[in-house]
Design a protein around this nucleic acid. Sequence first.
DNA 1: GAGGAAAATGTTATAATATAACCTTTGCGA
DNA 2: TCGCAAAGGTTATATTATAACATTTTCCTC
Lengths: 154, 154
Amino acid sequence: MQLHDHDHDLCLREALDRIQAVCHERGVKLTEVRRRILELIWTSHRAYGAYDLLDMLRAERGRVDPPTVYRALDFLLDQGFIHRVESLNAFIGCPLPDRSHSVQFFICDGCGTTLEAQDRGITQALERSAKAQGFQVEQKIVELRGRCAGCCTD
Amino acid sequence: MQLHDHDHDLCLREALDRIQAVCHERGVKLTEVRRRILELIWTSHRAYGAYDLLDMLRAERGRVDPPTVYRALDFLLDQGFIHRVESLNAFIGCPLPDRSHSVQFFICDGCGTTLEAQDRGITQALERSAKAQGFQVEQKIVELRGRCAGCCTD
DNA sequence: GAGGAAAATGTTATAATATAACCTTTGCGA
DNA sequence: TCGCAAAGGTTATATTATAACATTTTCCTC
Ligand SMILES: [Zn+2]
Ligand SMILES: [Zn+2]
Ligand SMILES: [Zn+2]
Ligand SMILES: [Zn+2]
């Protein structure tokens, strides 16, 4: 995926449509707040902090308190529609909202772009290592910080 | 390394001796506060939050404020004597205090034990993936959450 | 050994991130 | 339409981290 030059409006619309469909399948509700926060998260391919989202929401609807945002984030995380980026304390939309897959984030400290990858080689290496020591993995956090291709050449 | 049954006093003493030596080589100072916080971090093979350490320090010396702890942590991180565990907002001693190596953490959500590994296979898989997309890696964060061998059989 | 710069530490205040607890409203099936 | 469960509103507070400035200590130079 080429994030530095793509039709992001389409990108966003496709993501929302997929998620809308998944919600219907699962019988869960993408309420107004949840949907709006999801859209805000999809503003770009950067990760947004809860308070960034809170500010954006306040800009459109006046008073909003933290629990409103955190509750929506909890829902979106539970459903696998977004991921939490641990090293940024921030949240990002998931392009493949099938629940709980093993992903890796490539986080550009230049432009903030955070790319989600699903590299089978990495996943296998992690699983091999865990197995070797009898560790039962529940969650794999892989976040590579650095500079994306676009920012290296700048 | 077998963390569930080892001579931890020895473990701690060896770590401190190594670090003492490295400080001398580098011409940096392991001052009283820094040394004590390092010892407190090495209390076990769990990761401790800054405020955990603050409380421990207060228990021994009365009033201590957050910057005291954070400054010592910054020094210890800079020197590579400890690592920050992103998904826990916590800190853990590094058994191999050579500056900046690629490590992985296996974090047991049962007992809290956090094992530092240096698996060449994982590191290579990460580097291969980054190279494939022209991403220049500065920092590799790998934290596997789950249950350690000891806690699986419990 | 006195002067002075740099490093370290002390102190105060506040920023940034996240959750607990309780109450009200909404949606929806019995 | 009653009543429950889910969602959202509101208030308060917990947790993690840093900014800014004052003081002390270290240690080099003369
Ligand atoms: Zn896009
Ligand atoms: Zn970039
Ligand atoms: Zn030990
Ligand atoms: Zn365990």
